[in-house]
């Protein structure tokens, strides 16, 4: 019985949960401002959740976690920078950025999906390096692109856009502040959480339409799908299109909450962090649910938020970045070396 429970929760998820609980207890005993910490956890959760949810379509369609998420992310960055270039502010800027990002991201995802269909079985490796490549191509783009908004280019000359673009007064924390309230010193970023909930509901509905169901059939057994008259490649294509579109919108939401747009090398490892979050939530390389994505996002980001102040007090050094690297890559390694259940050997 206890064994069954352990299997259900999963060893990594259990360890991370216990660790998180331990850190919360430690933070409490050190007398750290818990309200601030909890609201930071909620914010980080909201910021990242759409980027993690973006993993679901490709996992469900059998293409594995989307290591090519940067294809979507850069589209989101283009959308966000265009909004500033056009001197938009407030919700106009946000909606404009998202409105541009989604079709761009979908298109990039479609192209990326065409590639994925030709490299079945090696999606992860190819996706990772294609993601890295596109990020470095975009570095050249940021350097050369004819942006002229003074908020984005270097003030005293120098080529191209700044490494980080401040969103102050444009759309900084727009969603976070929407309907936000404070209880016990904990600020709840209501708007951000509402948007997260909306994304979850939309994704949930989509996964229950005929197309969504077909995608999941294709992922769990491509041969079954073929025998049921489904075009496997078509649904994989839809999945990567959807995933990259979500990634594009996700980075805009992330940036507004963060208050900065990070350009150049910043998106390089973002896919890895999203992948590890969903894996921590208990997903495998073949199956993932919305709940797993949400739990994973909360655990992973919660841990990072709380580790920083606790480590600062406890050992006077910044261990949180190191921990992030170890945990995120450790969980991916764990998933890679697990015996595959089902899966397509072709």
């Amino acid at each position: 019985m206890s064994n069954g429970l352990l299997n259900k929760v999963g060893i990594p998820r259990l360890i991370i949960s216990l660790f998180l609980a331990f850190l919360v207890a430690a933070a409490f005993s050190y007398g750290l401002p818990m309200g601030q910490i909890f609201s930071a956890m909620l914010t980080r959760f909201g910021m990242n959740s759409l980027l993690v949810l973006a993993m679901i379509p490709t996992i469900q369609a059998g293409a594995g976690p989307n290591f090519g998420l940067p294809f979507g992310i850069i589209c989101g960055l283009i959308g966000a920078t265009l909004a500033i270039e056009m001197d938009l502010r407030g919700f106009t800027a946000l909606f404009f950025a998202i409105g541009i990002s989604i079709p761009l991201g979908a298109f990039a995802g479609w192209l990326y999906g065409l590639l994925l269909n030709r490299v079945k079985g090696q999606e992860m490796t190819v996706g990772t390096y294609m993601g890295f490549s596109i990020v470095s191509v975009m570095c050249i783009f940021w350097l050369m692109a004819p942006y002229s908004s003074p908020e984005m280019i270097w003030p005293y000359g120098g080529d191209g856009l700044r490494v980080t673009v401040v969103l102050d007064g444009r759309m900084e924390q727009l969603l976070d502040r929407f309907l936000s309230f404070t209880i016990n010193g904990m600020r709840v970023p209501t708007g951000l959480l509402l948007v997260t909930a909306l994304c979850c509901i939309l994704l949930w509905i989509f996964m229950r339409t005929r197309t969504g169901l077909a995608m999941s059939i294709v992922g769990s057994n491509p041969r079954f799908a073929e025998a049921s008259g489904l075009n496997v490649n078509k649904y994989r294509l839809i999945a990567s299109t959807l995933s990259c579109a979500m990634g594009a919108a996700g980075i805009v939401i992330y940036s507004q909450s963060y208050g900065f747009i990070q350009l150049y090398q910043a998106p390089l490892y973002m896919a890895l962090y999203s992948v590890s979050a969903i894996l921590i939530g208990g997903a495998s390389l073949q199956r993932a649910t919305i709940t797993q994505a949400l739990i994973g996002t909360f655990l992973f980001n919660g841990l990072l938020v709380i580790a920083l102040p606790v480590a600062n007090v406890a050992m006077d050094s910044d261990i949180s970045e190191i921990m992030r690297v170890i945990i995120s890559n450790g969980i991916i390694l764990y998933a890679l070396t697990r015996k595959e259940v089902g899966g397509d050997a072709r």
């Binding site: 059939i217 769990s220 057994n221 041969r223 079954f224 025998a227 073949q286 199956r287 259940v341 089902g342």
Partner: peptide, 8 residues
Amino acid sequence: GTGLLLDD
């Protein structure tokens, strides 16, 4: 292999 979705 073809007849079932084993994990559904």
